[in-house]
Computed example of a mutant assay.
Amino acid sequence: MTAEMIAPEWMRRQITGEQYDSWTEEQCAGIEILDGMVVVSPSPSRCHNRLARFLANALDEAGGTEWNADNDFDVRLQDVPLNNRRPDVVVYRVDAIDVAPTRPEHVLLLVEVVSPGSETTDRVVKLDQYAKAGIPFYWRVEQAAGRVPIVHTYLLDEATGTYRAGELFTGLVKAAVPYPVEVDLTGPA
């Protein structure tokens, strides 16, 4: 079996932002770009998607007229080499709704819901990558079958370019930053 049979040619070479931007939404779904290389993400579970949507809805409502919250779209962290991530929830400035690609300066908070197979990426790699991109807040949601989700919050330390741990919420999130939001996670799954 040859490499061509395993993966198409476009998955075996670095791509540019211009090339990526020419792809259809269908081609971009389920992938991220890390150092110019396509990284395929497994399809998340329904519980994962529901939890992400539940959080996005609560953050969107609490964001008022200044902040939107959505899921399932790209954030362009870096142009060369290309780094595009597709966080589970993105809180971004209302006035950037039509700006594409969404960039770190448009983003206030990124949320990742950890799934089997994304543990190291969400806990270590994205934590570092989002901090280096200057995203002010990062939330990591841990979920386990039959358990209440746990939300780990992080705040950017601009002096070091790293995150420091913030509050930890189990079940009920009652956060004051990045803006006041209350959401009960004991029932969305």
Rank of each mutant, 00 (worst) to 15 (best):
G171M: 07
H48D: 07
M11L: 12
S45W: 09
A58K: 04
W23I: 11
S43A: 14
V125D: 14
T170K: 14
V39D: 08
C28H: 02
L108R: 10
I31A: 05
T121G: 02
T162N: 12
E9S: 09
R147G: 00
L168W: 02
Y179Q: 08
S22R: 15
A3G: 06
I97C: 04
A133W: 08
V39I: 15
K126I: 07
M37C: 10
G30A: 09
R76L: 14
E26I: 12
M37G: 01
Y92S: 13
V107P: 00
L108Y: 00
G161P: 08
M37T: 07
E158T: 15
T120E: 13
L127P: 02
P188E: 02
F73W: 09
A144E: 00
R13C: 04
F73K: 04
R93C: 01
L156I: 10
Y163D: 08
E4N: 12
N83L: 03
G166L: 03
R86S: 07
V124T: 14
P178T: 10
R50Q: 13
P116F: 06
V107I: 10
V177L: 15
E158P: 11
N71G: 15
V38A: 04
W10C: 03
T24G: 07
I31Q: 09
E142R: 05
C47P: 05
F137Q: 01
D122C: 04
H48I: 01
P101Q: 02
M5Q: 15
R46N: 10
T186S: 14
E32Y: 10
S43T: 14
F73G: 06
Y130A: 12
F169M: 05
G187I: 06
V39A: 13
R12H: 05
I15K: 12
A96K: 07
V99W: 01
E61T: 12
L155N: 09
G187A: 09
D60Q: 05
R46P: 03
P44R: 01
V173I: 14
V177D: 13
V181D: 03
T2F: 06
P136C: 07
I33G: 05
V80Q: 13
R50F: 02
F137M: 01
W67E: 12
A159F: 01
V90M: 04
R93W: 01
V173L: 14
S22P: 04
G166Q: 06
A58R: 06
A145E: 06
V39W: 11
S43I: 11
E112C: 03
E158N: 12
S43Q: 13
T65A: 15
Y20A: 12
P42W: 03
N49R: 06
E18M: 11
G64C: 07
D157L: 10
A159G: 04
L82C: 05
P136D: 03
D88F: 04
M37D: 02
F73M: 15
E112M: 02
R103G: 02
N84Y: 11
L155T: 14
G134H: 00
I31H: 07
V141N: 01
T102Y: 00
A69W: 09
Y179W: 12
L108H: 00
C47G: 10
L168F: 04
V113H: 03
